[in-house]
Simulated assay, not measured.
Amino acid sequence: MIQQKLADNLNWTLLHVLIVIYEEGSVSAAANRLNITQSAVSQSLKKLEEKIDSQLVIRNTKPLKLTPMGHYCLKVAQTIFTEITSIEAMKGINSHLLEGEIKILVASRIHNPKYNNFLVYFKRKYPNITLNMNVKSSLDILSDIEQKNPAIGICLGRYTPEVINHKLLFEQRYYLYCGYHHPLFDAIDLSLDSLLKEEFIALLCEDIGDVLSPITLFKEAHGLNGRISAYTNNLDEAVRLIYTGYGIGALPDQFIEATHLESKLRRLPPEDGVADIPVHIYWHKTRALSLIESKFIEEIVAFYGS
């Protein structure tokens, strides 16, 4: 009877809070992920401990540690979480029944025809799933995913933290360009040697070790040591600066094909471009994924694998 009473009165939400506290390592981080106050998280934990009549968390440790009973309750909660998602999976036999919102961090100006085709495919297969796309820098996306908030990121990347899963989607090929107002725009018989003294527009993420550092390595290897006349962290501003003649710079070719300034920009030597920059999908290795988050990752990985 006592066991039945606990089962009848224990709120699943309290167990879910325990899972998040364990995964995030602190009450404040759990509150941020759940989008509620720290006080609400603490109260939920207190109620759970009162229901079970046992201490579950060792306070004042970073990250928070669980007691033996806390670990046992965590295993029970994780089992329940798996069973709940299996209920959703049964609904997922008909993809039209899947619904909810997926928050995805994406790098700006990612252009790839197959990526667009995937979004068309996903919308048609899962019409009731809402995509919440938030644009950030690749560095910030990896930092957020590493902290398990949110679950999914799509961005440029060269080095992946150990705690993050990743799958290559495609590569963006970068070429050197000049703009309509630059002296090289109408020049003939251009070669790589023609660029040795030219000023450059640089994206901030071209620094050594950052996602676009292969561009800097290429310039150094080929003696392209002209002065940097402007820096920017925004691809649109880089295009503007190149168009207005501030200097030459490296841009992804598929992005240029999608801009109205394509006819006002000239691709420069070398003919085969400067560097291939990989674009990956990222998700945390230990963060619990919802069914629709798992479906998105599963579908896009399979789509690019086909």
Rank of each mutant, 00 (worst) to 15 (best):
I2F: 12
D8R: 08
L10P: 00
W12E: 05
L14V: 06
H16A: 11
L18N: 08
I19R: 11
I21E: 03
Y22P: 01
G25M: 15
G25I: 13
A31R: 02
L34Y: 10
Q38L: 04
A40S: 08
S42P: 08
K46Q: 15
L48F: 14
E49F: 10
E49N: 04
E50I: 11
K51T: 14
S54Y: 12
I58W: 15
T61V: 10
P63H: 14
T67A: 02
T67M: 05
H71Q: 14
C73R: 00
C73G: 03
K75G: 02
A77W: 07
Q78I: 09
T79S: 13
T79N: 11
F81N: 08
T85P: 04
T85C: 05
I93C: 11
L98M: 15
I102Q: 11
K103E: 14
L105Y: 09
Y115Q: 09
N116R: 13
N117V: 00
V120G: 07
Y121V: 00
Y121G: 00
K123A: 13
P127E: 04
N128G: 05
N128H: 13
T130Y: 14
N132C: 09
P150L: 04
G157I: 00
P161T: 08
E162D: 12
L169S: 02
F170A: 01
E171R: 15
Y174W: 09
L176D: 12
Y180N: 10
H182P: 03
H182Y: 06
F185Q: 04
A187E: 14
I188P: 00
L192P: 04
E198A: 02
I201A: 01
I201R: 01
L204I: 13
I208R: 05
D210M: 12
P214D: 02
I215L: 03
F218G: 05
L224W: 03
I228S: 05
N234M: 06
D236E: 14
R240Q: 12
Y243N: 08
I248S: 02
I248G: 00
G249L: 01
A250T: 01
A250M: 03
Q254R: 14
F255N: 03
E257S: 14
T259E: 11
S263K: 05
L265Y: 01
R266S: 05
P269A: 01
P269V: 01
H280W: 08
K285F: 00
T286I: 07
R287W: 02
L289R: 10
L291T: 13
E293A: 06
S294F: 07
E299Y: 11
A302M: 09
S306M: 12
